[in-house]
Amino acid sequence: MSSAPLQLASLSGVEAAKRAAAYAAVDAHVGRNDRIIGIGSGSTVPYVVERIVQQGKDLNASRIFLPTGFQSKELIVSNGLQLGDVDCHPIIDVTIDGADEVDPALNAIKGGGACHLREKVLAEAAKNFIVVADYRKNSNGVLGTAWTQGVPVEAAEFAYSKVMRDLTKLGGKPVLRMGKAKAGPVVTDNG
């Protein structure tokens, strides 16, 4: 993945919207004094990293970037940014992440991309948590209208039956999400 900025004219309407949202989020929320930065996952995150790289090598040389999953780790490394982890940096200045759906009150569904637990840990550790979402992620007042696959829940393999039973007791209708190109369930970035 190239760190060179894409030309706006070469982007489709959706990609242009994602890029505009990511650039606006970085410009407004990743300041010169932010040194520990969480990088989330999803289709807007490459544009987040692209904009951070554009802030300059001198500034980024003093920063440490924490990924929520494989995609963001690869973006951090391939763009020459310093990789860190939450064990060494339990307080994060700002985390920027995507969302599956966001309602008008800024409630969100997250975790559909299988980085669920790591996204939550970096969000909770951040002084400022910023969600980047293009217009397709807006709900019409009620979560679940744009993202219809249900609320993602990550469960440890040994306990998934109990989690399914507990969710049913709460009134849910849990379904084990199966992998598309593999036999068996989706395995998250956290295993």
Results as ranks from 00 to 15, higher is better:
Asn140Arg: 05
Val30Glu: 03
Glu74Trp: 09
Leu122Asn: 11
His89Ala: 08
Lys120Cys: 09
Ala125Asp: 04
Val94Tyr: 07
Leu59Ser: 02
Gly98Pro: 09
Thr44Val: 12
His116Val: 05
Gly56Glu: 09
Lys137Met: 12
Ala20Asn: 13
Val53Tyr: 08
Ile36Arg: 05
Ile76Val: 10
Pro90Trp: 06
Leu117Phe: 14
Ile39Cys: 05
Ser72Thr: 12
Leu75Trp: 00
Lys120Ile: 10
Thr145Trp: 14
Ile76Leu: 07
Leu117Asp: 07
Asn107Gly: 10
Gly56Phe: 06
Gly38Thr: 01
Val102Arg: 03
Leu122Asp: 04
Leu75Cys: 00
Phe65Trp: 08
Ala61Asp: 15
Arg63Gln: 08
Arg32His: 05
Leu143Lys: 13
Val121Asn: 09
Leu66Gln: 08
Asp97Tyr: 07
Asp87Pro: 04
Gly141Pro: 12
Glu15Ala: 13
Cys88His: 15
Leu117Thr: 14
Lys18Trp: 09
Asn140Cys: 02
Glu50Val: 02
Ala28Ser: 11
Gly113Arg: 02
Gly80Gln: 01
Leu75His: 00
Ala24Gly: 12
Gly113Asp: 04
Tyr23Cys: 11
Ala24Val: 04
Val53Met: 10
Ala105Lys: 15
Gln55Glu: 09
Phe129Lys: 02
Ala24Glu: 13
Lys120Met: 11
Leu117Ala: 15
Lys137Phe: 10
